[in-house]
Lab assay of single mutants.
Amino acid sequence: TTEYTFTDDEEARRAIEELKKRGLTFRYEKHGTTWRVRVD
C-alpha cells in the first residue's frame, strides 16, 4: 500500500483521475484541506 498526501485540490483530483485511468484500486479521504490517497 502506498499513501499519498495532497493539500491542493486540483493536484489531488488529477492524481485520482490518473489512478482511475490506470485501473488501480485506491481509496481516498479528505480531512479539511488535506487529501489522503491510498493505493493498494
Rank of each mutant, 00 (worst) to 15 (best):
T1M: 12
T1C: 15
T1K: 08
T1Q: 09
T1S: 11
T1I: 14
T1E: 09
T1P: 12
T1F: 15
T1N: 07
T1G: 11
T1V: 14
T2I: 14
T2G: 06
T2W: 14
T2P: 04
T2H: 12
T2Q: 11
T2E: 08
T2F: 13
T2R: 12
E3L: 12
E3K: 03
E3C: 15
E3T: 13
E3N: 05
E3Y: 14
E3F: 13
E3S: 05
Y4P: 00
Y4K: 02
Y4D: 01
Y4H: 04
Y4V: 04
Y4T: 03
Y4G: 01
Y4M: 09
Y4L: 09
T5P: 02
T5K: 05
T5N: 05
T5F: 14
T5I: 15
T5C: 13
T5G: 02
T5V: 14
T5H: 07
T5Y: 14
T5E: 09
T5W: 14
F6R: 00
F6L: 02
F6P: 01
F6E: 01
F6K: 00
F6V: 00
F6G: 02
F6H: 01
T7G: 06
T7K: 06
T7I: 06
T7L: 09
T7C: 14
T7D: 11
T7A: 07
T7W: 08
T7Y: 14
D8T: 12
D8V: 05
D8N: 13
D8M: 04
D8S: 13
D8K: 05
D8I: 04
D9V: 10
D9N: 06
D9F: 13
D9W: 15
D9R: 09
D9I: 12
D9K: 09
D9L: 10
E10V: 10
E10A: 11
E10K: 10
E10N: 11
E10P: 03
E10Q: 09
E10L: 09
E10F: 10
E10Y: 09
E10T: 09
E11N: 06
E11V: 08
E11H: 07
E11P: 03
E11F: 05
E11M: 10
E11R: 05
E11T: 13
E11I: 07
E11Y: 05
A12V: 06
A12M: 13
A12W: 07
A12N: 01
A12G: 04
A12D: 01
A12H: 02
A12L: 14
A12F: 15
A12P: 00
A12K: 02
R13P: 01
R13H: 11
R13S: 06
R13L: 13
R13G: 06
R13Q: 10
R13A: 09
R13E: 08
R13V: 07
R13D: 04
R13Y: 12
R13W: 14
R14F: 07
R14I: 09
R14L: 10
R14Y: 07
R14P: 01
R14K: 11
R14H: 09
R14V: 07
R14E: 08
A15H: 08
A15E: 04
A15N: 04
A15K: 09
A15L: 14
A15V: 14
A15Y: 15
A15F: 15
A15G: 04
I16M: 13
I16D: 00
I16Y: 02
I16Q: 00
I16P: 00
I16W: 02
I16T: 02
I16K: 00
I16V: 04
E17G: 07
E17F: 08
E17H: 08
E17Q: 10
E17M: 10
E17S: 09
E18Q: 10
E18H: 08
E18P: 00
E18V: 07
E18Y: 13
E18W: 14
E18T: 07
E18N: 09
E18D: 10
L19V: 03
L19Y: 06
L19R: 00
L19N: 01
L19P: 00
L19T: 01
K20F: 11
K20Q: 10
K20G: 06
K20C: 15
K20W: 07
K20N: 05
K20P: 00
K21G: 05
K21V: 06
K21Q: 08
K21D: 05
K21T: 08
K21W: 04
K21N: 07
K21I: 07
K21S: 09
K21E: 07
R22I: 07
R22S: 12
R22M: 13
R22P: 00
R22N: 08
R22V: 05
R22Y: 07
R22E: 06
G23H: 05
G23E: 03
G23C: 10
G23F: 04
G23Q: 04
G23T: 01
G23S: 03
L24R: 05
L24P: 01
L24F: 10
L24K: 06
L24M: 09
L24G: 02
L24V: 12
L24A: 10
L24E: 05
L24N: 03
L24W: 05
L24I: 12
L24Q: 05
T25C: 14
T25M: 10
T25L: 11
T25G: 06
T25D: 09
T25H: 14
T25F: 13
T25K: 12
T25Q: 10
F26K: 00
F26A: 04
F26L: 07
F26D: 01
F26W: 03
F26P: 07
F26H: 03
F26G: 02
F26Y: 06
F26V: 15
F26I: 12
R27E: 13
R27L: 09
R27G: 06
R27S: 15
R27T: 15
R27A: 12
R27K: 10
R27P: 01
R27I: 14
R27H: 14
R27Y: 14
Y28T: 08
Y28F: 10
Y28P: 01
Y28V: 15
Y28I: 15
Y28C: 15
Y28L: 11
Y28Q: 03
Y28E: 03
Y28K: 03
Y28A: 13
Y28R: 01
E29K: 06
E29H: 06
E29D: 07
E29R: 06
E29Y: 13
E29G: 04
E29N: 05
E29F: 12
E29P: 00
E29V: 11
K30E: 02
K30G: 01
K30D: 01
K30Y: 04
K30R: 09
K30I: 09
K30Q: 06
K30V: 08
K30T: 04
K30W: 04
K30P: 01
H31D: 14
H31W: 08
H31F: 12
H31K: 11
H31T: 13
H31N: 13
H31M: 12
H31E: 13
H31S: 11
H31Q: 12
H31R: 09
H31Y: 10
H31A: 07
G32H: 03
G32V: 01
G32Q: 03
G32K: 03
G32I: 01
G32L: 03
T33P: 12
T33A: 10
T33I: 08
T33N: 14
T33L: 08
T34Y: 11
T34C: 15
T34K: 07
T34L: 13
T34A: 05
T34W: 06
T34S: 06
T34Q: 10
T34H: 09
T34V: 14
W35A: 03
W35P: 01
W35Q: 02
W35C: 12
W35S: 04
W35L: 05
W35H: 10
R36D: 03
R36N: 06
R36C: 14
R36S: 07
R36Y: 15
R36Q: 06
R36M: 11
R36I: 15
R36E: 07
R36P: 02
R36V: 15
R36L: 14
V37K: 00
V37W: 01
V37I: 14
V37T: 00
V37R: 00
V37L: 07
R38G: 04
R38V: 15
R38S: 14
R38P: 00
R38N: 08
R38D: 05
R38W: 15
R38K: 13
R38L: 15
R38Y: 15
V39Q: 01
V39D: 00
V39N: 00
V39W: 04
V39L: 07
V39M: 04
V39Y: 03
V39A: 02
V39S: 02
V39I: 10
D40M: 14
D40K: 09
D40Q: 13
D40V: 14
D40H: 13
D40N: 10
D40W: 15
D40I: 15
D40F: 15
